[in-house]
Every structure is written in C-alpha cells, then in structure tokens.
Amino acid sequence: MSGVTILVSQTRHNLVATVRLGAAIALGVIMPVVFFVGAAVLFGAEALGGDSPVVVRGAGETPDLRTFYVGGFMAYAVLYAAFVASLPELVDIRERGLLKRLRGTPLPLWTFVAARLAIALAVTVIGVTAIGVTGRLAFGVTTSPAALPGVIVLTIIGTSMFLCLSFAIASFARSNSAAQGMSNGVGIVLALISGVFFAPSILPDAVGDVARYLPLEPLANSYQSLYVTDASGLGLDLGNIAVLVGWTIVAIAIVAVRGFRWKPFQQR
C-alpha cells in the first residue's frame, strides 16, 4: 500500500467514525451556527444599536454588528472543530489503546497526522461555509467574491494551528475527561476575549492587547477584515498570520520536545 492510499483509507474511516460520533459536527457546525443566529437576532437588532458600524482592528469598519459576527463565528467554528472537539477525541483514541495498536502497524506517521488534518478541515470548511451562507441568507451579510481565497487560506491556517495545539495539549491530558475540561475551558475563555461574542472595544484595553497575541483573536480579526466593505484579494494582515504561524510552531515544538504519546497514560 502506498502512503497516499493509506492516507485515503485512514481519512475515510476516521471521518466516518468522527461524523458518527457527532461531537465534531455538533461543536464545529451546529453550535457556531446556533450561537451566530442567536447573537445576530438578539444583539444585532437596530433598536439595540446593532446597525452601528463596528471597528475591526487594522481594517476599518463593518457596516453593522451582524457583519462583525459573521467573521467572529467563522473563527469560533474553526476553534471548536479543530481544537475543542479534536483534543478529547485524540485523547480518547489514545486512552482506549487504538493509537498504540496503530503504532504497531505499518501506518506511516505522516499519514496519521495528515488524516487528522483532513478530517478537521472537512468539518471546519462545513462550519465556516454554514456561517457564511447563514449570514448571507438570513441577515444579508455579504462580502466581495474576491475575499473568498482569503477565507479559504485563513481556514487552512487556522485549522492547522488549532490541530497542532490539540496534539501539543494531548501530551499533557491524562484522560478524556481532563481533555474535555481543558479544551472547553480554553475554548470559552478565548471566545469571550477574542471578538467573537463582543466587539473588542467593550473589553478592557489590557485584555484586548493580550488577546491579539493569542490564537483566536488574530483569526477572528482576519475573517472580520474580509467583511470590511473594501476588502479584496487575500486581504490578510501579516501580523495576524505571523501570530497564527507562531502558535503553530510553538505547538510543534512542544510535541517535538515532549514527544507525542501513543500509549495510554496509565501505561509505562
């Protein structure tokens, strides 16, 4: 079997298992859409000032809060699919001994990582698309077609970063329960301070200053920038991309130094 054939098989079987499990779709697609619709309906109404422009750091103004939410919840969908759902699943298959068993087969390491990335990307693409389509159909939020390549590139970079962080933190999580606690805790805090539920302007300056160097805010800011009226092309802020790539490198370095754990934690 060639590596590519193994990759296709691993991706197919892992994807079927993940979809049937349901957590990734619930966390990475359904929840972001529900939260987006809820936030846009509750807080995006004209009577509550939802039609006021919102300033997107480094890019300009979105015409209203609903448009701001589209970019924010795209980033939220990537976070929850590639990290909050991925981390416990990774730890779960390790603790049930499946990773150890696979390590005893001819499975090339790169095909395992690539299959996990392909699965995460499949879910994040669905989630980001669902947010974009819902925004357009339900709330009339649009952007230039020229911004589409930027959305695609951001989704790939963001998914890769959060998946690498999943691999890094999995080496510390001793059980599925611990992994769920870690991923949900990190996910909620990041979502609250990174311009997903609230415009950064209502947060204390110090929080915003820290958040822009954490993994989610630069991703949310980049998606939101693509929905600023005059966005075109990739429209990517290099500072944001540098932060995202930086976190990816940190995650890979953690895995390299600590070593990826294939065996269950209770085993030596």
């Binding site: 079987h13 079927v16 298992a17 049937r20 298959i93 049930r96 001994g97 499946l98 068993r101």
Partner: peptide
Amino acid sequence: DMEVFPTL
C-alpha cells in the same frame, strides 16, 4: 487492552 472506534 484495546478498542477500535466504537462507531465503526
């Protein structure tokens, strides 16, 4: 001790 994906 090993269990493959329960959903497959």
